[in-house]
Design a protein around this nucleic acid. Structure first.
Length: 666
DNA sequence: GAGCACTGC
């Protein structure tokens, strides 16, 4: 354990200050690979705390900070930082900590746990805001969970908020939505209290300082190539230094598999030193056991080469990496509010990303980064930061988040990066049609408040609440849990036939949602067996998480006064509940369509059933989908067949207005 | 006939 300054003793000096710009002081802190916040993956795999946040906080202690505002999500920081501050001797003198937690559900559960961990009794509970008032006997006079407008205003006027305040923002995910929300809130404070000096710490800044190390090193020359896999291979093979693993950043599964193959072929053809390479792919679609290969120690005389997506940029840390090869590209999501479609495209990364990637090298010894683009491109053309997520996402979730923070004037909110007004309007439209917002754009009661409290996509939340009416909550919370996963299937390239056959054992004529119910039933009947999952090409870890999320949802429903009911075999009930949430995502098969083309009802967009769906090639006339993914085509993922009458039944306000002849035969 | 990554405990 490090030594920390106690008030009244001589203060240690810190060398943490990286940069000073315009009165904003940056303190280095990283949550993703170190510090208190582990990423989920990291946390599962290695339980080794590194104390980046501790050092940052040491700096604050040193500078007589009086207030710390900790952003932005995650329970790690909000629970452990207050605890840590106590340890650090920061407790004396009536200082103030506020932890922001945009999601109310999290706030409540976290708060209860904090109370337990700190051995204190809960203070008064106002809504879902919990306040401790000098209950710790440790001198930390207040810990506020800054979750709604009332507390935000209190915070602004708090006399304890003097001179320094420290905002720790986890920017590992460059300009994420929650970061933007937090910064927007902070701007409000700053305007009200201009004398305050705000200190922002961020992981991106850490990347910047690390990249200084590489700054004057020679970079590989070469154009930014579209086809990154082939051009990457020579770079990997040209790494001549004898020791140290290599981490390569490419864009996606296809590129990665191609590169792995090319390197292995090269090894066979030329008996070059590449035969000493142990080449491993890494992307989230891989099974856990395949992913874990990258953590296995490199065999003697071999050099590990991990070819990865962005997953290794922030969420996974490989200790032995000494060389990084950066293609300069990643897959990024862009949302078009006019068409309401999210596109997944290969795009150039930002400088901040490039630095973060470079920073993955040399964690254990000095390293090198090979960038597959020119220094001139880096200096002159590469954008400093990625386009904020706020500006390229569907905002339905964020709008409801703000509403639940007590911020009613969404359009007037002071975003650091204002999203396109069209996105706002779309989001408000959807929330209104779901019955979450009323005509004055206020949360409805109880639906709006309940939806805001469920930490899932509002459409899923609405589906869950509707299941109460249709008496099928047992089934719906299972479906909701599965839908909030990436996928419950394992990636099965090469064993496609076996995989398809396995899937057929669960396939339901109604579509993917009911199929998931069958999988869940099978999993439970097997006694939650990992063997059973392996045999059926199902991701065991995903299923365990489904069970976990399902459990949380069931607790939540109980709090709403709803009991779990099963519709047994009556799938029509649960399909109607699903439609009650997803009516806006309806499509019909184009008459005479030969290739399975659908059109969305809302925008007449051409869409197709994703090949991973059990309804692929089945093509029912009317379907609703959970999400669209757009690569070369617009694909619907998680598709269910419906009766079009259910649409008008679930959302007469939505469909009568737009399409009076909805039920017309096709 | 196809799947960048993250967050909620």
């Amino acid at each position: 354990m490090s030594k920390f300054w106690k008030p009244g003793t001589e203060r240690p000096r810190s060398s943490l200050i990286d940069d000073e710009e315009g009165g904003v002081l940056f303190v280095s802190a990283s949550a993703s690979s170190s510090g208190f916040g582990y990423s989920t993956l990291e946390r599962q795999r290695q339980r080794l705390p590194v104390f980046k946040y501790r050092t940052a906080i040491l700096y604050l202690v040193e500078n007589h900070a009086t207030t710390i505002i900790v952003g932005e999500t995650g329970s790690g920081k909000t629970t452990q930082i207050p605890q840590f501050l106590k340890e650090a001797g920061w407790a004396e003198g009536g200082r103030n900590i506020a932890c922001t937690q945009p999601r109310r559900l999290a706030v409540q559960s976290v708060s209860a746990r904090v109370a337990e961990e700190m051995g204190v009794k809960l203070g008064e509970e106002v809504g879902y805001t919990i306040r401790f008032e000098d209950v710790t006997n440790s001198g930390v006079t207040m810990i506020k969970f800054l979750t709604d407008g009332v507390l935000l205003r209190e915070m602004m006027d708090d006399p304890l908020l003097t001179k320094y305040s420290v905002i720790m923002v986890d920017e590992a995910h460059e300009r994420s939505i929650s970061t933007d929300i937090l910064l927007g809130l902070l701007k409000k404070i700053q305007r009200r209290r201009p004398e305050l000096r705000l200190i922002i710490s961020s992981a991106t800044i850490e990347a910047r300082s690390m990249s200084n190390f590489f700054h004057d090193r020679k970079r590989n020359q070469g154009d930014a190539a579209n086809d990154s896999a082939p051009s990457t291979v020579p770079a990997i093979l040209s790494v001549e230094e004898p020791v140290g693993d290599i981490l390569v950043f490419l864009t996606g599964q296809d590129d990665i598999d191609a590169a792995v193959q090319l390197i292995n072929e090269n090894a066979l053809d030329h008996r070059s030193h590449s035969s000493g390479l142990l080449v491993l792919p890494l992307y989230s679609g891989l099974s856990r056991s395949d992913q874990d290969l990258i953590f296995a120690p490199t065999p003697k005389g071999k050099r590990k080469v991990v070819i990865s997506t962005n997953i290794a940029e922030t969420s996974l840390t490989l200790d032995g990496v000494v060389y990084v090869v950066d293609s300069g590209f990643s897959k990024q999501r862009f949302y078009n509010p006019i068409t309401d479609i999210e596109n997944l495209v290969v795009a150039p990364i930002s400088k901040a990303s490039a630095r973060q990637r470079a920073g993955r090298a040399g964690r254990v010894r000095p390293g090198k980064c090979f960038r597959l683009y020119t220094e001139e491109y880096f200096m002159k053309e590469m954008s400093a930061e990625a386009i904020p997520e706020m500006q390229r996402s569907n905002l339905v979730g964020s709008v409801i988040q703000l509403k639940s923070l007590g911020i009613d004037n969404i359009l007037g909110f002071d975003w650091p990066a204002s999203p396109p007004p069209e996105s706002m309007v779309r989001a408000l439209e959807v929330l209104y049609s779901l019955g979450v917002l009323d005509e004055d754009a206020k949360l409805t009661s109880p639906t709006g408040f309940q939806v805001a409290e469920i930490p899932l996509d509002p459409m899923i939340s609405k589906m869950i609440l509707s299941a109460n009416t249709y008496e099928c909550t047992e089934e719906i919370i299972t479906i909701a849990a599965v839908l909030s996963m990436q996928s419950i299937w394992v990636s099965a390239r090469g064993v496609q036939k076996e995989f398809d056959e396995a899937k057929l054992r669960f396939a339901a004529a109604e579509g993917d949602h009911v199929t998931y119910l069958n999988v869940y039933k099978g999993f439970i009947q097997s006694g939650k067996s990992s063997q059973w999952c392996y045999k059926n090409y199902i991701n065991y870890h995903a299923m365990k998480k489904v069970v976990d999320i399902r459990e949380q949802l069931s607790k939540l429903l109980k709090r709403f006064g709803m009991s779990l009911k099963s519709c047994e075999r009556d799938t029509q009930k649960l399909r109607k509940a699903i439609v009650a949430g997803f009516f806006a995502n309806s499509c019909h098969l184009e008459a005479y369509s030969q290739n399975g083309m659908y059109k969305t009802i809302r925008h007449s967009q051409e869409v197709f059933i994703h090949p991973s769906s059990v309804l692929f090639r089945v093509n029912p006339k009317w379907v609703i989908y959970h999400s669209l993914v757009s690569t070369d085509k617009h694909y619907m993922r998680n598709v269910m067949a419906i009766d079009p009458d259910w649409l008008t039944e679930a959302a007469p306000h939505f469909y009568q207005r737009k399409r009076p002849n909805l039920s017309a035969p096709f």
